[in-house]
Simulated assay, not measured.
Amino acid sequence: MNPPDITFPPREPTTASDQAPVKILVVDDVPQNLLAMQALLQQPGLQLLTAASGAQALELLLDHEDVALALLDVHMPEMDGFALAELMRGAARTRDIPIIFVTASPGDPLRLFRGYEAGAVDFLHKPLEPHVLLGKVRVFVDLHRQRRLLRQRNEELERMLKLNEVMMAVLSHDLRTPLSAMLMSAEVLKRLAVGDAAQRAAQRVKDSGRRMSHMIGQLLDFSRIRSGSLALDMQPHDLRAVADTAVAELQQAQPGARIEFSTGGDLAGRFDADRLAQVFSNLLGNALQYGEPDEPVRVQLDGSDARELCFTVRNAGRLSDEVLQRLFDPFKTARDGGHDGLGLGLYIVRQFVHAHGGRVTGRNGADGVEFEVVLPRTPPAAAG
Rank of each mutant, 00 (worst) to 15 (best):
F140V: 15
G90D: 08
L72M: 15
L346T: 06
R211G: 08
L283T: 00
H125Q: 02
R307Q: 14
N315Q: 11
K126L: 14
G291N: 10
C310A: 11
A248T: 14
V297T: 06
I24R: 14
A248V: 09
H339I: 05
R275S: 15
S320I: 03
Y347T: 03
L288K: 06
R318F: 12
L342M: 13
G119D: 06
V27C: 04
G338P: 02
I99Y: 01
K332G: 12
P44S: 10
E260R: 10
V26E: 14
A268E: 09
L112Y: 11
P10V: 15
D142N: 06
E322W: 02
R307D: 15
S53T: 04
D221F: 00
D174C: 09
G119I: 14
R377P: 08
P44H: 08
R258D: 11
Q289Y: 09
F280S: 00
S208A: 10
N164C: 06
A51M: 10
L309I: 04
L324K: 07
F113T: 15
S229W: 04
D266P: 07
T94I: 01
R153G: 11
D294G: 09
S180C: 06
I97L: 13
E156R: 11
N164Y: 01
A118N: 00
A198D: 11
G119Q: 14
A68R: 02
R191Q: 07
D63I: 01
M160V: 02
V121E: 10
L35I: 13
L284M: 06
G195R: 05
F140C: 05
R153F: 08
D96G: 04
D174N: 12
A243H: 13
R11I: 05
R191M: 08
D122N: 07
F261S: 06
E65L: 13
A83P: 01
N164T: 06
G285Q: 01
M234E: 15
P379V: 10
G341V: 03
P106M: 13
V353D: 04
G338S: 08
G45R: 13
L283W: 00
G119L: 13
T103K: 00
E86Y: 04
L40K: 06
D142H: 01
A55N: 07
E78K: 12
S105V: 11
L40A: 07
A118L: 00
D305H: 00
P379N: 13
V132H: 02
N286E: 06
I99Q: 02
R191F: 09
D122S: 08
D272K: 00
H125G: 04
V22E: 12
Y347D: 05
V132I: 13
G338K: 07
G45N: 11
P127I: 12
R350F: 08
L72R: 04
L288Q: 11
P3H: 05
A383F: 02
F311V: 02
P236A: 12
L110H: 04
G81H: 03
A231F: 05
L84S: 03
P178W: 00
M88N: 07
A83R: 12
Q42P: 03
V279A: 12
L46G: 10
M184H: 12
P109I: 00
C310T: 10
